[in-house]
Design a protein around this nucleic acid. Structure first.
Lengths: 198, 198, 198, 198
DNA sequence: TATGAATGAGTTTTCATTCAT
DNA sequence: AATGAATGAAAACTCATTCAT
């Protein structure tokens, strides 16, 4: 109802941005509220005006990250072109996303690590995954229906693609000299398409 | 020869085993030395008799895990059969390994999360990755040399397979109902092989 | 000017005062931060708000004590009268100081004990000593120049006087029944002056 | 009864010697039983075979030190010569002793620091002091009786001398470059004798 | 809204002491 | 006599959270 988003939202975002970097840099446990306050440029007390506690900031970060990615995905949904073209466009967008995420890698893995114990995190990423799979599934399904792809279980293909995307992101952690995010996602997807295309 | 069998190594392993479960359950930060002591069935002081500090226990766990995996990999090195058969055998072994790792998933991601800040962790997993890649590369190379696989860059293929393995392990965290470790690794690798085999 | 008077300095002094007594009573090692907190009437956390650690409190105490003594010494510097009178005035002031220090005797010796290992303590007391010697030296020098004292090395006399002052303070520890701080400093200095005065 | 002191005594002395250095180096609180064990060349458990606990070692060190000094003092008691000569001989012996003590300075001050809280330490040093005073008193008394020294209270003179001895030892802690143990004890005692001698 | 001083529960780590061998 | 693994009490220190201003 308010014509302009009040300052509160803006301040909240500042905190989320700052905290994202602090958590990525130091890890959730090692990051101190003082660090986040300093990085945001406010006092420690202010953090508690906008967020219930440290955990709530973490959750807000996750929601924020997933929202951004989902926004990108939604852009795909009504793209024109062949299934192959649409699939590659999806990969392109995801690569762009993952590249933006690179500096946040430690934080991403922290979310994965916490997922089992932290039901809200679990729920958030599961929901994100479901939406992402939906997009891939529908593209693959269409490709199969239209005879562009070999017939099979679309979900299996989606998961294979998802695994390549996330897996390459992960392999980078082992050795970022050897594993190049964009290059290797593309080469892996190409290999997959070699077998998939009719 | 020694009158009292040296119980040191055994005790160290007990601690490592216990700590592995505690860290996997609670996360490194939340896990208390008391928990590890209790789980091991010794006193807190004993932990410090065998390990310098909490961090040293974490490192020992990682070394332990990687040692076990490398031992499995080494078994592959002189396996007979076609490149395809050997590759599938490698996948089989890795699947078995990954299944054993399933309960430790949060701990694995914690290692990935820590890798950037923790040089010893970084070094350990990098070395592991190098050895794993060596095995895959040599199989793929042989397959290409012998005309079993299409020609190409073996390393790219290895990374695609590595991404599928680790990526599927990761996708499970999103939704373990949808993503089945063994089934989806196999179906993804099959897709890859469809394009790879001549 | 500031709306809330800065309570920081005051609070710091409260802690220093309390800690002085706790350290004198229990010794540095035996004194617990909890004791200091309780004696100050604040929580343990507050101690760490004002001081980095236990050691920093000890240092602050030393600076505080030496500052007070130096302030007393500075009063002497432009006193009128003969060299003998001025020397006795200096002794008087030092006696007054040492009497105030009596309850802190164990702490003083702790500083001396720590001096070799603790460079900041060493530096602080050395600087104090240098200033104290300067005052004595200049008085003795004047007395010699003006023919009031026998000629000689002023520094040797200053050290003799310093030794009597500190030495009497120390002998009290052996047996405070036998050694009376004021009485024996005076009698010892008198003996010295017997030989020194022309 | 046993003709030769059994090995126990010897081992005890080894521990005392080692512990003396460890305590002097690290201070009582910081010194670990492990350090003493290592320095002695035995295991930690062995220390407890010979001493009830850490405190008992400290006490044994003090007794040991005082015994050695008392032995030196006893040598003085029937020295020939004038009172002045005998006094200077006493000073000589004490200087020799104090020089030996120099490396133990931090430990000595630790004893002084502990004296108030630790009744056994207090008692030991008080007894030592009494004996030392007796020797000085009797020399001074004889000097006065025989007209070699000006009449006065012998105890006051003894305390002045004691203060010079201990005080010079202490001033060294302030600045060992400026204060030279032997040189300044001699010069200070000379100043005192200037006034004391008839 | 914003601040930052104050709190105190929580945790790692140390180390004197014990005791089975 | 001697060892050294094991214990657990003790203490320093951290830091999320609160709250008076």
């Amino acid at each position: 109802m308010s014509p302009r988003p009040d300052v509160s939202e803006e301040r909240k975002e500042q905190i989320i941005d700052a905290a994202t970097h602090v958590f990525a840099r130091s890890g959730y446990a090692k990051a101190r509220m003082d660090d986040i306050a300093k990085e945001t440029g406010v006092s420690k007390g202010t953090l508690y005006w906008y967020f219930k506690n440290k955990d709530a900031i973490l959750l807000a970060i996750l929601d924020n990250l997933l929202d951004r990615e989902l926004a990108a995905i939604r852009k795909l949904e009504q793209q024109p072109g062949s299934a192959r073209e649409q699939l590659l466009a999806t990969i392109d967008i995801t690569i762009t996303d993952l590249k933006k995420m690179e500096p946040l890698t430690p934080l991403m893995f922290e979310f994965f690590s916490l997922a089992k114990r932290h039901k809200l995190i679990q729920k958030a990423i599961k929901e994100y995954f479901r939406k992402y799979m939906e997009v891939l599934n529908s593209i693959i399904q269409r490709g199969m229906d239209q005879g562009e792809f070999k017939p099979g279980n679309p979900q299996d293909v989606s998961i294979a693609i998802g695994a390549i995307l996330e897996g390459t992101f992960l392999l980078r952690v082992y050795d970022s000299k050897i594993v190049k995010l964009e290059e290797h996602i593309r080469s892996s997807v190409d290999l997959l398409l070699d077998g998939l295309l009719v």
